[in-house]
Structure formats: structure tokens, C-alpha cells
Amino acid sequence: MTEPGILQVRHVFKAFGGLQALSDVSFSVPRRGIVGLIGPNGSGKTTLFNAVSGLFPPDRGEIVLDGRPIAGRPAWTVARRGLVRTFQVIRVFGQMTALENMLVAAPGLDARAEKERALALLDRVGLSRHAREYAADFSYGMTKLLEFARVLMPGPSLVLLDEPAAGVNPRMRETLWSIVRESREAGTTFVIIEHDMNVMMTLCERLTVLNYGEVIAEGPPEEVRRNKDVVEAYFGKTAERAER
């Protein structure tokens, strides 16, 4: 790659007590790309998101967003530089309306433009009828959609999605992925954690595979799919034999 990516993660380490959650993780996200982050449960995907988004600093290593180092910076600074994320465990603001949830993430336009933008995004995920209801009264799927709409509210340059489709009904799931594609066309970059391999194979241009906190493979989906280590990590050795 000649042009440096929008995000570079270089030699990042993170341990929790005796558990080495991330071990020498390096990868790069091309601008306006859709990158998938896959790996078995406990492989360090969410930990990597947390370190990149500033929830906690990595023990070692560099994280560079748009040419500026962000490792160890607080989450709100990282967010204001254009990197926002969703959470696997939803973090919507329960005692606030959907619209208010959106406005918290507003990019700082005038009030009318922000409200229009918020309502348009809510409409896009099918929540416009519920704009003035408290998020606490939403179903699980609706809160996932709200969180997804909210993460697009500030007009971010890089979005980290941690299992955004979990608990969302199949039809809305399709909508969600098409919004990802459209936003990418509009200039947003995505890194996605998702367990549905069919989605990941078609949606992402590149996949990064983590296992036990290490990157075990990286590349276009087709290539990664054929990678022996990946198959082993996912399905164990029997599956590998079965494939042969």
C-alpha cells in the first residue's frame, strides 16, 4: 500500500493480570475501506477496539489515526478526532429520548441542522417514529439500531462496530449493512467485528484474524478463508481434515 492507511496499529501489547490479551498486534486500515476483525471468542477483538478507541491505553505500541498518535489519549479526544465506536454491550442513554441520544453525538452544527441530521439517520434505521421515546423503553434490537445510528451522527472518519447486527432482525440487518456500504461511499472507513462469516466475506475488503491476542492472518477474505491457521483456529484440526 503506497498511501498510509487511516489507522495504523503497531506492535500493540495489552495484558490483564496474567492474561496477555493483545500480543504484538499490528495492522493497518486503508482509508475508505471496510475491514473485518474476526477470531474466536476471547481472541482479543474487543480489547483491540477498546485500546484503539481510548477506553484504556495499550501497555506498549503505537496507534496512529490520520497521521497523529492516539495511543493513551482519552476516549473523548479520540472521538473528536473522528474515531467513534459501538459497544458489544449496548451503551445507549436509557433515560433520554432517541433524538437526545443522537444529539449528544452531534458534530457541532447549528441546532436545526443537527436535529434534521439526527432525524434523517433515525429514519434510515427505521426509528423515526420512536424519536421522542426513551431508549430505556426500546427492545434490544432497537437499541442496537439506535447505537448504530448514533455512531454515524458526528460524521466520523473511522467507525469501529462491535457486533452491530447481533439481536437485530434479518431485514434490518440487511439495511444496516447497506448503510455501512453507503457511508463508505461517502468517505467513512469501517472496522467491523461480526461472527456471521457470510456477511464478513461479502462486506469486507480485508480481514484481520486474531487468535490468543495475536494476528494470525490478514488479507482479502478469499485468501484468509483458505489460510490453514485460520481454519484451525476456528474449527479445530478435525475441520481442517474435513475440508481436505
Binding site: L55, A75, A79, R80, F93, M96, E100, L103, V104
Partner: peptide, 24 residues
Amino acid sequence: SRFGLHLLAIREDETGAEAMGVAA
């Protein structure tokens, strides 16, 4: 105000608010 929304967001979920750019 926006400031008031930020305060409420902190009350609801401070980590979530910070992840959305609120200087808590």
C-alpha cells in the same frame, strides 16, 4: 442546551458518553 444533554449522558453512561466525544 447541548451541555445539559452531555451531563445527562454522563449520568446515563459515562463511558458511552466519552466514547461519543463528551469531555466528561
